[in-house]
């Protein structure tokens, strides 16, 4: 099986972000980065599929500045075979532009499965996977939380709001991975050593034609919470009163 997996480098989110001087981007100084959560599960799904079918190749794709090679190496150390870095100094806010650049590279190979994360936690777009599928004319199942593939066909589960869907599809296919599908493996020491020697090709990304632009980035207003109204069951009547008279939700 030929399996592709697209991973994005994203900031670790447990910080207070600062807006850069241009007012339209994040100040990246001092931030830590990692592979997008959902993309770790996409890599894991790709590795499990390869292991199950017993042959084939898992190829990692990532678009971004040179620094993304750090995340690419992590995916390789988990067990992916080789990688392609699509070099772009800045990652655009236009999911379609990213999808086009990835599709332009992916289309050279006949993949059995292309895995994406459900969403990148920085862009919060949840768009690139289905867009690439459309651009390549491939079927797509997004946000899957279970997966079975056998004999050129697959079945997946998608979580909806308080419901779920069972979806059947043929291969080749584009799949985007939700939480719950698997837990990612940690890179072993051996994996980390091996990753250093795995092929990593770097080439310019074909980014063009964005029809979306960032006008402004800002921090949301701080919540003015932090009010403790009492202790134990004795505080319940006061809570009811506040919900009725102040918040007006009861």
């Amino acid at each position: 099986m030929k399996i592709a997996v697209c991973v994005k480098r994203v900031p670790v989110m447990d910080v207070k972000f600062r807006i850069a001087a241009d007012g339209r981007s994040i100040d990246e100084s001092g931030l830590k980065f990692d592979i997008n959560d959902f993309d770790l599960w996409a890599v894991e799904a790709a590795l499990q599929l390869k292991e199950k079918t017993g042959d084939g190749e898992v190829v990692v794709f990532s678009l971004g500045p040179d620094a993304v090679q750090e995340q690419i190496r992590k995916a390789l150390s988990m067990g992916a075979d080789r990688a392609v870095h699509l070099k772009a100094d800045r990652v655009t806010a236009d999911a379609l532009a990213i999808a086009r650049a990835l599709a332009a590279e992916l289309k050279a190979t006949q993949w059995d499965v292309i895995f994406f994360g459900r969403v990148a936690i920085d862009s919060a777009d949840q768009s690139v996977g289905p867009m690439v599928a459309e651009l390549l004319g491939m079927p797509c199942v997004s946000a899957i939380s279970s997966l079975e593939i056998a004999n050129g066909r697959g079945t997946a589960k998608r979580e909806l709001e308080s419901a779920s869907e069972i979806v059947e599809f043929p291969l080749p296919v584009v799949l985007t991975v939700d939480e719950g599908l698997n837990k990612e493996r940690l890179p072993s020491l051996k994996g980390i050593m091996a990753a250093k020697k795995k092929p990593l090709e770097s080439k310019p990304a074909q980014l063009d034609g964005a029809t979306i632009s960032v006008v402004k980035m800002e921090l949301p207003p701080e919540r003015t919470g932090g009010r403790i109204i009492g202790e134990g069951a004795a505080a319940v009547p006061e809570l009811i009163r506040l919900l009725q008279t102040e918040a007006k939700v009861l």
Binding site: F17, V214, E218
Partner: peptide, 12 residues
Amino acid sequence: PTHTGKVIATLA
């Protein structure tokens, strides 16, 4: 909202 709701982008 981007970055897990910690940033809000205005897009044109």
